[in-house]
Design a binder for these strands. Structure first.
Lengths: 354, 354
DNA sequence: CCTGGCACTCTCACTGTGTGAGTGCTAAGA
DNA sequence: TCTTAGCACTCACACAGTGAGAGTGCCAGG
């Protein structure tokens, strides 16, 4: 990374803060006045010239002021930024909301909503993969000769359901029996483990399985394979906040951005990426690697359930955002969410039958 | 309604069609050329003048051509429009998609997706109110001393679930027993009926109820009251198609429109309104009564399950849309959806346990 | 090394101008 | 009485020119 003189750093910091505040290219004189610098505009111009050579700032045109480049933002975020403690009102707001929410899914959706409300940007939340959830039980409900509703419940109270079409009709008693056998065989393992065993079980010769279990396995397998598509793995909230930013108001850019929000594919990859490491991560402009996020930055932080990272919360906004504010909001939200999901709130722990 | 000379009608029709086709105000000369009229531009101007007096068309400014007013569109739609038969490729496309889809919820989402794909506008689908669904069964699953997962299944295979917090701990056996009692008491009635009975039952002195049923009622009541918020009552797809229309490209207008898509409140009212009557309904511009839909038209058609109207499909786009095309697409989609939901597809009918 | 001064550049807002599209009106023709 | 050709008129739009303002780069002196 480039190293700058303390003065240049101070200048760059002031410039970026000023630009973030009002979105106008900032000139030497304004900068001296606004930041209360003790040297003259001319000196500032010299330093700016250096910064421009380093690729940290640039001039939209000759007689405009300077604007940070993505590289400039990156430097700013890496070395100049002092995380700003969160306003206590916001903090209380988040805590309140998490306290009153029960259902883990709703908790996640709330988190996304809160992020977008507080930051006035778009909030995103990566829902935990169900693969790692623990299987609890499964029920088969016959609806007609060829339609059976399968309901799958995980240890943490998530419910999946799917209508499947068995090869032959089953009586209610048979279905009940099949569920019982299946449940005692698989309860307590993760969904992924169950899925794997099902695959193996199906490949093996059916002789060595009880007839009932075989049916159960076949039907359950249908649920497990259809799994992914079933529910949104990602919450996006407050997209329309982004209309407020002139730098994004280009219709074409907006369309691509909104398409990305709908398709979710790219965002998902990005969030999965950021699950790999602890703490807040920031993708500035092209760093995300997705065209749709061209003039945008994404700030993310993973959240945990009982000490394991299971998902990510984050915020999407224009590169010109108050990183200090946003970073602490995202950070705190991730922490509080982890807390709410882990202990009392709901989300896990032994289902002691009282 | 105003009545016009046949010539004026012909002219108005040609003008609106021309305007829908390319979005430019249309002048007398272009109109003569494009529509192959056998009278001169001057005559056209005279007629246009009449139409303008009647409020059917207007001039954005002195030297521009004419543009239809909302009233003009309304007249056009009411009396000049010949419904255009649907392109057979589109028809096949819809049928295919409905055929391959099983789950009623997914079927509805598909319908919305199809509408937006084919019309290149935003598709909306009003999901049936669950209130009229028939109650089938309910299960209580204890997760911890103070958390019980309630799973409710309707006759048509929908699954609702909610975590509730009972007043005292229950053993698994108690929960099982409570569910049994509850199910035999209420199976086969509509959710609304069940909700009503629950209210009554709770008000009555608890003495005359079995202890078990009382608990079941209290817990079930929690599920029934939390019902509405649980799932989206409305699917919206392809919103980003609307970016393509210059008449909507005003950022402020777009924001309001997208907020309406997110809040869903207004759209819901509109769709509920259109459930009252059979067949395609069209709301042009201000007719919808919602500011957010200012320069937009909404085309809707109710769909049925077993002869009863239960929801609405529709399309939102700029007032300048190909009404003939859109109307038939919406109409056909509603019909095919009704079919898919009613017979084989899924959606209803006796759950013969085979 | 800093700074004041100065010439220079470029955007932006404003103004004026010409052109093209389209209108309304009038008077002549069917 | 209805239609049409002709004509004067209006207006948006694109284009060029202008002046002000903001900001820069560079140079020479402290």
């Amino acid at each position: 990374m480039v190293s700058l003189t303390p003065r240049a750093e101070r200048l760059l910091k002031a410039l970026i803060e000023q630009y973030i505040a009002d979105g106008q290219p900032v000139g030497s004189r304004t900068l001296v006045k606004q930041a209360g610098l003790e040297f003259s505009p001319a000196t500032v111009r010299n330093i700016m010239s250096d910064l421009e050579e380093l690729g940290l700032i640039r001039s939209p045109h000759t007689s405009a002021g300077r604007v940070p480049t993505e590289r400039g933002y990156r430097f700013f975020v890496n070395t100049l930024l002092a995380a700003k403690p969160l306003h206590s009102i916001d903090l209380a707001h988040i805590e309140d909301r998490f306290q009153s929410e029960q259902d883990p899914q709703q908790l996640l959706e709330s988190a996304s909503g809160l992020l977008s409300q507080i930051t006035k940007l778009a909030g995103i939340v990566r829902v935990p993969r169900r693969t790692y959830a623990e299987f609890r039980q499964l029920d088969f409900l016959g609806f007609s000769a060829d339609r059976v509703l399968v309901i799958l419940v995980t240890h943490d109270g998530q419910v999946l359901n799917k209508v499947i079409h068995p090869k032959r009709p089953y009586s209610p008693a048979e279905l009940q029996e099949a569920a019982n056998v299946f449940n005692s065989a698989y309860a307590g393992r993760t969904l992924e483990e169950v899925r794997q065993s099902l695959l193996v079980a199906l490949e093996r010769d059916s002789e060595d399985m009880q007839k009932m279990l075989r049916s159960a396995v076949e039907m359950a397998h249908q649920v497990f394979t259809g799994d992914q598509a079933q529910e949104p793995p990602l919450f996006v909230t407050g997209e329309s906040n982004l209309f407020a930013f002139p730098e994004l108001s280009n219709t074409d850019r907006l369309k691509r951005l909104f398409d990305a929000f709908t398709a979710k594919q790219d965002l998902l990859h990005l969030l999965d990426q950021s699950m790999a490491s602890q703490g807040v991560q920031i993708f500035i402009g092209a760093e995300s690697g997705y065209d749709a996020l061209e003039a945008c930055s994404v700030v993310t932080a993973p959240y945990e359930v009982d000490g394991h990272i299971v998902g990510t919360v984050g915020v999407v906004g224009p590169t010109r955002m108050s990183y200090d504010r946003v970073i602490s909001i995202v950070d705190v939200t991730a922490r509080l969410l982890s807390g709410a999901l882990s202990h009392g709130g709901s989300g896990s722990r032994d289902p002691a039958p009282a």
